[in-house]
Amino acid sequence: MRVVLAEDLYLLREGLVQLLTAHGFTVVAAAETGPELAAALDEHEPDVAIVDVRLPPTNTDEGLRIALAARRRRPGLPVLVLSQHVEQLYARELLEDGSGGVGYLLKDRVLNADQFVDAIRRVAAGGTAMDPDVIAKLLTRAQPNGPVDQLTPRETEVLGLMAEGRSNAAIAQRLYMSEGAVGKHTASIFGKLGLAPSDDDNRRVLAVLAYLNSAR
């Protein structure tokens, strides 16, 4: 799988290249600055881009903006955004087009290599990977009388894990229930949120969006 990586800190960039190579990815470009990233995305057309929010030369949200622009040019381009901090605002912007293939994780998650690689593969396959911290912030508030408010506590829990981007199998393992039970819960969630049956992955993204919007 071909990866374009953008990270301005030398140590972290090299560490990520090593980690990715060790797990069978091909890092076709490791950019240090925003313009380099933009050029690399155009040149290599990677299977997934791993991008730090903050990049030189401005050291603001350059990485995020370039990633969003690239996704507008090439809808569905899988992008995993890394940051030292997570903001619901950025998560919302990433998910806004509803086409999936986005991830937003704290840089801390790199420490757990297996989960991190798992998240990259999910994003590359068109799924989502939301940082648990974003989801935790969302869970502290849900608007009364919104559609999400009608979910049972168990369904909210399932939706939270779904929003992180977990598969049914992973959710079942985490919540100690059978995969079939998770399937029933997700079907009920889709029904309550008014999502028509379609491609399951896409619906999961839409459910997450509904979730995000309900907390607005």
């Binding site: 929010v53 903050r54 050291n59 603001t60 949200d61 995020l64 940051s83 030292q84 901090h85 903001e87 619901q88 605002l89 919302r92 912030k137 502290t140 508030r141 608007q143 907390a215 607005r216």
Partner: peptide, 23 residues
Amino acid sequence: PPVLAERGLADAVRALALDSPLT
């Protein structure tokens, strides 16, 4: 706040609003 450095006041306030327990 990092979001203030990255995005400026307007988006930082929006982020603040999203993180608040109130509507």
